[in-house]
């Protein structure tokens, strides 16, 4: 890794009005990250730690300190100028990104969406993946693998409301890709779902995967599938029994996604209810239906018990039902 030299020459008090807050060249931080103590501190003491700015035309780009500037600029906080280190206009963007990474990793671990924004920007700047791995990955605590460059670049394609949920749930990198390809209406539905039911990452992943698979199978947007299954039903607050709502929603989705499996399992369950078996007998079958047949399990202790059980299991009624169960294989 090439050593980074911070090229600042000047310290200034810069008017907030001269700072271009809309410029997103270095906007890698998660926008949802809140810091109430920062607001209190700025209210009480103003901005103490200098921000880092770069002059671009008649304004200043923010390299570091975006949150401090945003907070200072909030209504009701009477701050007009912030302390700033100014870097030369010619300082390369790629070096400034490395600086941003060094600056931000000191007090916290960067989230996957933040790392993703950095990688996406570097790729836009035509930085080769091998250089991203060598020069930037160590600053993001990532393993040196070019496959990760591709995976990270894809993360920011996940719609923003889900991105926040996934980051907060510590979603592993490889699973972000499961959430790409949703239309706007589906995202809005999923946002309601996450806010109302707070599903686990696994449950959310299952719902999204099945929605997308059904959408591809039926050649319609995922939101149409969600609508046709009336998945939004029960998501209106206040939700009394979130686990029950979630489980009913997933059952509807599963029935649509696996109609044959669900039908056959239900048939087996219904048929097996008619079996008249000795008490303590357990009946089960492979839920994937891959293993043909049914399991009838009974604990026998004496020869008399065996005879009674065999007679009962082999009754005409049971035989008929078992034959029906097997003929459905």
């Amino acid at each position: 890794m090439i050593p980074l030299v911070f090229p600042t020459e000047k310290f200034r008090w810069v008017p907030i009005s001269k700072i271009d807050q809309e410029d997103d060249t270095y906007a890698f931080g998660d926008p949802w990250r809140q810091s109430p103590p920062l607001l209190q501190s700025i209210r009480a003491w103003s901005v103490l730690h200098p921000v880092v700015l770069k002059p671009v035309r008649s304004k200043y780009q923010i390299i570091s300190g975006r949150k401090r500037i945003r907070t200072a600029a909030r209504q009701g906080i009477n701050i007009r100028k912030v302390p700033a280190w100014l870097v030369p206009a010619h300082w390369p963007v790629t070096d400034a990104i490395r600086f941003w990474l060094s600056e931000n990793r000191t007090d916290r671990e960067l989230s996957i969406p933040e790392k993703s924004r950095v990688v996406r920007r570097l790729l836009d700047l035509k930085v080769p993946p091998s250089s991203i791995v060598d020069d930037y990955f160590p600053l993001m605590d990532l393993q040196p693998s070019e496959a990760l460059v591709e995976a990270l670049a894809g993360v920011v394609s996940v719609p923003a409301p889900l991105l926040r949920y996934l980051a907060e749930k510590d979603c592993p990198l490889r699973r972000y890709a499961d959430f790409v390809g949703l239309d706007e209406d589906s995202v809005s539905f999923l946002q309601k779902l996450t806010e109302g039911l707070s599903p686990t990452l696994n449950d959310l992943d299952k719902i999204v995967t099945e929605l997308l698979e059904l959408s591809r199978k039926e050649d319609v947007p995922p939101s149409i599938i969600a609508e046709s299954l009336k998945l939004e039903e029960g998501l209106a607050p206040p939700i009394q029994d979130a686990p029950a709502v979630l489980s009913s929603l997933m059952a509807r989705l599963r029935e649509r996604r696996y109609p044959e499996l669900v039908r056959r399992l239900k048939k087996k369950k219904d048929l097996s209810r008619g079996l008249d078996l000795p008490s303590g007998t357990a009946v089960s079958w492979d839920p994937s239906l891959e293993q043909p047949g049914i399991d009838i399990r009974l604990h026998i202790q004496t020869p008399e018990q065996l005879k009674r059980a065999a007679d009962k299991i082999g009754s005409d009624q049971n035989r008929q039902i078992i034959e029906q169960l097997l003929s459905d294989e």
């Binding site: 698979e213 059904l214 696996y258 109609p259 499996l261 891959e290």
Partner: peptide, 9 residues
């Protein structure tokens, strides 16, 4: 569409 059918392990 190969993954969209019902598949079991």
């Amino acid at each position: 569409k190969v993954t969209t059918e019902e598949l079991v392990r």
